[in-house]
Amino acid sequence: MLKFAQMQLRDAAMAEDAVQEALAAALAGERSFAGRAALKTWVFSILRNKIVDLIRLQSRTTNVSALADDEAGMDETFEALFKANAHWRPEARPFGWGNPEDTLRQERFWEVFEICLNHLPEKTARVFMMREFLEFETDEVCRKLNLTISNCNVILHRARNGLRRCLESNWFSSGEKPC
């Protein structure tokens, strides 16, 4: 859980506090649990809300919609995948990744996946993780972070493409050839 909070918040001290508070809140509650799994799900749902509160606080002090250097760099890399007519350059064309189940069964894949996630620019990663890991609807993410829908879309597209490219070159590239 701590590592999960750290991934989202990218701040060790904040993550530690969030997890501790979530645990304390869960233990202070009067609910009884059928088992360990139920307790864990409960703690996790508290943690999810704590993380979002902290992200909101952070986003108030930093300008989430301003384009950071690392994000601008990602956008340039994305633009470079296309020819002048906005169609794929042959060498940059996305290729088939094979059977997803086979990939997801491999432990080594998850290491690469985590590295690629951590490699995303901070703000980009936050929006993406709120959407995909904390499973907020996109308009909720935008609202909580004070982003316009179009800004949110741009950020999510950047994140997905960055992650896709990272996995493609670090995991899938030894597989099928581009067609």
Binding site: H87, W88, P94, L104, W110, F113, E132, R160, R164
Partner: peptide, 22 residues
């Protein structure tokens, strides 16, 4: 466009991977 068809499959893969990651 085969490249974009692959892109779409890759987007679906990312969603699946994120769910499983969680």
């Amino acid at each position: 466009c085969r490249g974009c068809r692959n892109f779409r499959t890759q987007m679906d893969f990312l969603r699946l991977a994120c769910r499983q990651f969680m």
